[in-house]
Structure formats: structure tokens, C-alpha cells
Design a binder for these strands. Structure first.
Lengths: 231, 231
DNA sequence: ACCATGTTTTGAACGCGTTCAAGAGATCGT
DNA sequence: ACGATCTCTTGAACGCGTTCAAAACATGGT
């Protein structure tokens, strides 16, 4: 279609360009961690990476686009930590709690400035929103992790829920992230308390869905989700 | 304590200052509605209000503080619309659904710009965050509305839940708002579908909480909420 | 070797939110 | 009337994210 180069597309990048790109990401994440998001300027990132200001913008359309790198790295680190948890635990509650806990551990160094990132979650037009089509790969990967929480566990639940639960657990995860972002206790103690106790709670709740009296509500919920997806 | 004047505090404002303040708010809301949040500059607001740029900052610490006026107005409109619903309906599902629906109706004219507003509101350090101490009055008022949804209705539920449910319903409301912000269907059709069907679902679920088998989970949840509040 | 075409790099310039030192009015005790 | 002390107003200046025209560099075809 267009002849304009797209440095965001890996397929059209040279080895040199890729290295420069990586240098900028490394500098940005390091400075973000040390000084926070606001106090880290694009000029300081460019300096630290040894490139000019304009060059940084050649690779990243905006300061927020650098956040995508943060998301990606977080997703990779979480997936690695998750692997260990999923290999170790067999109970549903332990697997779920372990996964959520692992995320808190992985994200801890970035807590101070993660709030700035969260601005993107509510901005519907931003490609950085966790609900956007641009971040669908990362979202799918994350949901797949929660599917494995289910698959490898001993959990019995209403069959209609099986296919929906991974996405619902991902939503729960997003809720935990929201709580975490607003959590000002040291070491995110309150978030850790939340994930430690919400997992057994979800476990109990999920097992209840097999009761005939509860089935009605579960079916309503599943139907609603299906209809929302269609519309 | 301090002798520095605080124009944000109504008690320390003169009639003249109050008029100027109002002129700035009016100009801001008009320009926001016409051109959106980003394209409206503080300079244009000051011009439109007939004051200097610095003077606008004397009354409002930041551009975001001007949006607080927008929220306050929305809260008032919702409370008015809610009054009508609560007077009309007696069933819990109808009262809850009516309240959520009323919000969607009231907010509809601002849907196009709401994304930009909520972007800033989602940041934990922002005074515009629905969880911030600055917006506690508005939050309390909103939660009080949901308490009245309960009080005036025929709902029977686990006693332990009664005091927690209003806040949980407000959380549900926030979830609906998040969905609404991301809803690109015309007239926010999908959000309307969601609120129309989630209310009966919550109704069913709430009634189930009285069953002995479900009580355990409910008590766990209530305990968790209480412990989180304490920590 | 040379041009054409694409890719990467540069830094000056722009617009905006925000700050601040300085001054103009208002109010009040004497 | 007159300082003293608040309250209010001003516009220049600053820092930062972002844009852009132009240059440098690379690659490939002839």
C-alpha cells in the first residue's frame, strides 16, 4: 500500500535498527524504574540510549508506546514465573493464587510508576489498552495461562462455564491489577492479602456452580457473555 | 495553620472571586463540549472566560481540576434521574437496572469525550480518580444511591451482606462505566444490553446468598472485605 | 561509477500545561 | 489618611512531548 517505512513492524527492520530500538527500550525501562515515568524525559531516554531525540521518535511514536515494551516484558516474565507455579501446584486454588501472586512479584519493581501506565487502560482509542485489538496477542497469551490453571487442576464445575472461565479469570486478574495500582501499602501487602484469599474464594464459588440451584444464574451469565460477544 | 489563601475552599472566597471562578468553569465546560478535552487549551479557556492564563491557575490548580466540575454536574443529573426511578420501582432488579440505565442516559451526550476524561481519571494519583479522597463526597453520594436501591426493595439476602452490598453495587457500576467507555456501538447499545440483563442476574445471585451452602462463600467474601478495609 | 530509492539520524522549532516573581486592588486597624 | 496585610491578576518563562524538513547513510539497478 504505502511506501513509508514502519519501524514498529519487525519484518521491516534491519539488524542495526533492531539494536538501536532495543537500546532505547532498555534505557527507558531502566530510567522508568529509577526515576518514575514523569520524571523520565524523552530527552534523557535518548541520551541514555546514545541516540538523538528525534531518533527515539523514529522508533517509538510516543512516550506511551514505550509502555508497550513494558507490557511485553511483563508478560514474558509472568509467563516464566507461571511455568514454575503450574508445574508445582495441582489444586485449582493454589494454581490460581500462585499465578496472581507471581504477577505481583514480577510487577513489584514497577509499582511506583505503573499508575501512569494505567491511564492507557481507560483510554479506549489507545492501542495500549488491554482491551484493544493491538494488545490482543498479549491478552490471548495471558488468557491461555488461565486456561492452563483450569486444565491442570482438579476443579469440577458447571460444563457451560469451562470455556468462559479462563476469560473471566483474566478479568479477575485485571481487577487485581487495578487494586494493585491503587495499593499504597508497603510491598503491596494489601494486594498480596487479596490474591491470597480471593483464590480459595473463587475455588469454592466455582465448585458451587454444579449445584442445580446455582445452575440457573450460571447459565444466565454464560448466555449474557455469549450475547455480548455477538453484538 | 497556613496563611496562604486557598481559592479551592469556598469559605475563603469573595463574591468577586466566586464569579470569576464560575466564569472559568462555564468557559471550560463549553469548550470541552465543543472541541473535546485535548483540543481545548488552558489559554483558550482563559480567553473565553476573559481572564489571564495565570489567573485561571489561581482558581484551578490544573486542567484536570476543571474536569471535577464536569463530574459534579453528572453526579447531580444522575441523582435527579435516580430519584424518579426509586420512586417508581419496588423490585430490586428493576431499581438496580433503572439506576444503571439512568446513568447511561445521563452520560450519553458526553460519550465521545468521556474517553479522554477517563484516561486522566484512571490514574491513581489524579484527584479525578473515582477512588481518590478528593472525589470521596461524590463517591459517597453514589454509594448512598445504591443503598437506597436495597432499602426500598423486596430483596432478602444474607444479613452479613447487607452492609457491604451498596459498595459492591457501586463497584459494579464502575465496571459498567468502564464497559461504556469502551463501547463503540451506536447509542451504546451493548452497554444498555449489559445493564438490562446484569440487574436480574445480580438479583438472582443475591437471593441465593441465603442458601446454607452458599453462606460459606458469602461469609468468606464479607470477611475479606472487612480485613481489606482494616489493613 | 552513478543515480534512484529507501532507511535512519539529527536538532531546531512548536504548542501546551504549569510556575513564579511582581504588581494591582481590596480591607482594616490606627 | 496611611501603611500593613490579604486577595487577586498578570504575562513572561520553563520544561516537556512531539513534529518536521533536511541531511546522512545504505542498497540496488544500470
Amino acid at each position: 500500500m504505502t511506501a513509508v517505512p514502519d519501524p514498529a513492524n519487525p519484518a521491516s527492520r534491519s539488524a542495526k535498527g533492531e539494536a538501536t530500538r532495543q537500546a532505547i527500550v532498555d534505557a527507558a525501562l531502566r530510567l522508568f524504574r529509577e526515576g518514575g515515568y514523569d520524571r523520565t524525559t524523552m530527552r534523557s531516554i535518548a541520551d541514555e540510549a546514545g541516540v538523538s531525540l528525534g531518533n527515539a521518535y523514529y522508533y517509538f511514536g510516543s512516550k506511551e508506546h514505550l509502555v508497550q515494551a513494558f507490557y511485553d516484558q511483563m508478560q514474558v516474565l509472568h509467563a516464566e514465573a507461571a511455568e514454575e507455579v503450574l508445574a508445582r501446584e495441582t489444586g485449582f486454588a493454589e494454581r490460581l493464587g500462585g499465578l496472581l501472586q507471581a504477577w505481583v512479584d514480577v510487577a513489584e519493581p514497577y509499582h511506583a510508576f505503573a499508575g501512569k501506565f494505567f491511564k492507557n487502560a481507560a483510554e479506549p482509542t489507545s492501542p495500549l489498552s488491554p482491551f484493544s485489538t493491538e494488545s490482543e496477542p498479549a491478552r490471548r497469551a495471558s488468557i491461555a495461562l488461565f486456561a492452563r490453571v483450569l486444565d491442570g487442576s482438579d476443579l469440577k464445575l458447571a460444563p457451560a462455564l469451562r470455556s468462559e472461565l479462563p476469560e473471566l479469570l483474566w478479568l479477575l486478574h485485571m481487577g487485581v491489577v487495578l487494586f494493585w495500582v491503587h495499593d499504597r501499602s508497603e510491598g503491596q501487602r494489601r494486594t498480596r492479602m487479596l490474591v491470597g484469599r480471593v483464590a480459595p474464594l473463587v475455588d469454592k464459588l466455582a465448585r458451587l456452580t454444579r449445584l442445580p440451584v446455582v445452575r440457573g444464574v450460571v447459565n444466565d451469565l454464560v448466555d449474557l457473555l455469549a450475547d455480548l460477544r455477538k453484538s
